[in-house]
Design a protein around this nucleic acid. Sequence first.
DNA 1: GAGTGGTCTAGACCACTTT
DNA 2: AAGTGGTCTAGACCACTCC
Lengths: 240, 240
Amino acid sequence: MIERHMATLYQDVIDALLQRIASGALPPGAMLPSEVQLGKELGVAQGTARKAVMELEARGLIQRTQGRGSFVTLRTPEESLFSFFQLRRPDGTMDPPGLLSETLKTRPAKAGERETLHDAPETVYELTRARTLGGDVSVVETSVLSTALFPGLADRGRLPNTLYVFLQQAYSTIILRTEETLRAVPAGKAVAKRLGVAPGDPLLAITRHTYDALDRVVEVRTSHCRTDKHAYFAFRSRST
Amino acid sequence: MIERHMATLYQDVIDALLQRIASGALPPGAMLPSEVQLGKELGVAQGTARKAVMELEARGLIQRTQGRGSFVTLRTPEESLFSFFQLRRPDGTMDPPGLLSETLKTRPAKAGERETLHDAPETVYELTRARTLGGDVSVVETSVLSTALFPGLADRGRLPNTLYVFLQQAYSTIILRTEETLRAVPAGKAVAKRLGVAPGDPLLAITRHTYDALDRVVEVRTSHCRTDKHAYFAFRSRST
DNA sequence: GAGTGGTCTAGACCACTTT
DNA sequence: AAGTGGTCTAGACCACTCC
């Protein structure tokens, strides 16, 4: 006979909350029911509801403060930048990035993009941007997103500096984590010209996969960065 | 009047455990008292002891398994490699790194090293190693450690492939986290020769600060890596 | 003052590992 | 069978925020 693990009670509570958030019943910024209230609604003790809510806080999906309540994560532009933009000055401080240019087009998805992006979209948006750091053009990046997941994105005119805040506001898509692979590559002609370096000069190439609250890949981004005045910061803890 | 926060009870339990671990009373691999036992010893309820132990598990200092007990983290060579060695094949799998050469010398600490390393040591060990990945020489790295923290390190003969396992066994120093800064740089003559690339070719330069259980910087390491066949992997979650 | 999360207790039962 | 961590309950008090 096959053993089947009982789902734990607080797991059920987590799923119930995820459901409410993903469905839009609890949009970003909304306040959750209190721990006791949530317990009553789902027929569990306050401590059990608490454990579920704390787990979601650890995942970054909700934020809680004593005396105020628990709220679905609302990403601000500052947070968003600080969380996911990793180029810093040598001393660790951030040079606020500026947006220099931006072009958006719709095109068929390449094979690799269909494999990676959630739901294997037929067509994608391709968003290319150049960023400045401390006055110098330092980053050229290209984002690829599914047209199916974000309908009408192209019609919205100029996009804000922080894409993830926009995705949250316009589509209730909460960006929770990224996976990046880094390489040192020689600058190509076009990129070199845009960054003001010589062709062949070393650049940091970053490929990013971006995950939402349901752990779906909603963006693939490739960046090329100068690292003469800035560096990429990474932190690593023992995996548990 | 100045308000002073009461330390929480489970914080006291955490401190007591940290004390026992740092003092060597609970060496790596040792079993902790059970939750109830720990509660009795420190005069708190089982749930309070549990919260402390779970916090330490989250920090990576101890590991717990149902039915067996809680144990001070014992790093194995495999874990150590997988936790802190971030160069992987494009598909994410690891090429087990080989150790090609190793030289260890003692020298006065440079100014920057004194500022960074714990306790501003006067003299340091400088450990230089070349590593292979899948047959090719791919990494050249230099580790700098305080001679005061690790007395007799130079007399121990050949060091194992995984330095952190050795530090744990020989000095009860548990490595928990690292901070790394990455740059793309042109290969210098000496490094280029050792890695089999042309001078000026792009390399990934990694500077690592290594922290122990008490959050002290116990190592500064600089690596230069080829990234034509491998890439550096980084993961990032929303900071809570 | 009412409502919230933060901490703590005491006890219970279960699932798992070891002997 | 004994001992462990994993889950859950029910109730309590505190600290904080907001009205």
